[in-house]
Design a protein around this nucleic acid. Sequence first.
DNA 1: TTGAAAGCGCTAACAG
DNA 2: CTGTTAGCGCTTTCAA
Lengths: 334, 334
Amino acid sequence: VVSIKDIAKKLGVSPSTVSFVLNGKAKEMRISAEMTKKIQQTAEDAGYHPNQVAVSLRTGKSRIIALIVDTISGSFFSSLARTIEQEAQDSGYRVIYCSTGNNIKKGGDLIQMMHQYQVDGYLIIPSAGMEKDIELLLDKNKPLVLMDSYFPGMAAPYVLVDNYGGVTQGMEHLIQKGYKKIAFVCNDVDMVQMHERKKAYEATLRKHKLRFSRQLMCETKYTASKEEVVNTLKVFLEKNKPEAVFFAANYLGVYGLESIKSLGWSIPKDIAVVCFDDLDIFNLYPPGITSIRQPIEEIAKKAIQLLLQLMNDSSKPKKKGVQLEPQMILRQST
Amino acid sequence: VVSIKDIAKKLGVSPSTVSFVLNGKAKEMRISAEMTKKIQQTAEDAGYHPNQVAVSLRTGKSRIIALIVDTISGSFFSSLARTIEQEAQDSGYRVIYCSTGNNIKKGGDLIQMMHQYQVDGYLIIPSAGMEKDIELLLDKNKPLVLMDSYFPGMAAPYVLVDNYGGVTQGMEHLIQKGYKKIAFVCNDVDMVQMHERKKAYEATLRKHKLRFSRQLMCETKYTASKEEVVNTLKVFLEKNKPEAVFFAANYLGVYGLESIKSLGWSIPKDIAVVCFDDLDIFNLYPPGITSIRQPIEEIAKKAIQLLLQLMNDSSKPKKKGVQLEPQMILRQST
DNA sequence: TTGAAAGCGCTAACAG
DNA sequence: CTGTTAGCGCTTTCAA
């Protein structure tokens, strides 16, 4: 491996001269044009590549953004990742992904570790239990932006979809279509985005003077296996026989379709379906599942834009949170 | 941020003593028990965390494994990631993910960068054009394992599914069910895994004395958009009206289902379907799509196991490649 | 049983 | 216009 020193020695100049040239500070430092050329040439020929670890240690910067996420699968993440990576690259940053694997402790470790690796900024899809670690970053003045959810009362900028509005939109649609007995399937994740969705469900029912009943709300365990959830839903649906069901998350929609399928019910004849967060499969699956699409690309764009801003301006804009509007995709399930 | 020096100063001892204790070399260095306790205590209280960048620079090791992949979406990757992360963690390594975004140049940059960050090992799902960069790592004696595919003639260990066997299995099944006019939908990715699948298709036809015709083989552009591919497939299917179709990749299966749906054909009445690589949706989508399931978990386990071995033993086992057997999941589409 | 010191590769004052 | 030098935080050899 060739270092700055090596190429300095080869040219009989000092390492600093080489460093300046290689960092584009040649004219700023008034290095002669010929020297500059010579250095660039030898560096090129020698196949020089800066040791980022040394640069990091010295400068305290890494030009890396960490994208920390609960689970690396999941379409929300996939779509997000692509956009973020593109935008980051355009600004000279690299993105590395880390998943906490639904593991509270690991989330903390991970943030710690990224911190020790001196990543410059954090994009975080927060999960329950990450508060303390995020607070820590905040205390250390690390630039960070939350996506998809946030912690009430915490001074971290966030960007997410209007969850309340999205569910309201879907519920209004169902009600307007004449469905009265509308079930709501959610999970027990203790985070605002889910709270908002639940609130919106209940509020829309009440607004239309429809009976809100705890019976019709099925709160599945987030940590349960697919089989367990599918089964729970099956029991729930069979017992309550709702006219329509609103799934509060895309994976719940998928599981729900499986339950409905195994009950032998037909959509929308036996039951109408709306799901929060669109998936390709909702378009494909007959008869097509009406869904509330999150503007994932915009979320990603906005988030990275905020982050870059935080990383460059030392002046904290402290624009607390941004909400983006979802869009209802009408299909034949309603 | 508290450093080793800080806690040394606070205790009036030397940094080296602190370092020894904090690295568990206390008894090896015969540091007194009381000193050890005291140091551990202060470090704990002060919230000391080693600066990994400094450690890396000094030791040349990072305890990080890079998982380099074409695209971070994709179910193959998702499933892989979870297992790998778990196994890596058990061995004291962290995993970071990097996607090359179908971008040849970026793939090289990325590997370069990871190299400069001194990651200890590489797990790579190779894509066309990454040869040179992988060779580079090989030259530098970096531990690496390829997954899903490999480069013929390159001395890099790899682990993948038996592509040839998988397709053969699926084709035999179709033929045995009586289908004669069997189409094959693949893409133009110039990598062995796809070559193997194509070869198996052709070979199985020939073996059964069925006519092999270039007409019945649809090679879609990997870089084409979803809409383009769906449309291409639609035209292809409509023109050739095959009795059965074999999709050589999971995403092609999904696109294909969409094409078939929009043609208004019914499965398996109008056309039988088999897809290489299983997806949840193939189970859900009526009537259920027969597929060839890759043993993703085993691939992940085997790959990381090989990598760990390479990273620990300096003696290169050079076990060139490992092939794992796929499993056919019979559903109602055939 | 502990400490001093060198040095990983790079940057950035500060001096020439 | 270019060179000297002092570290960034840590590990590890060698000395005490």
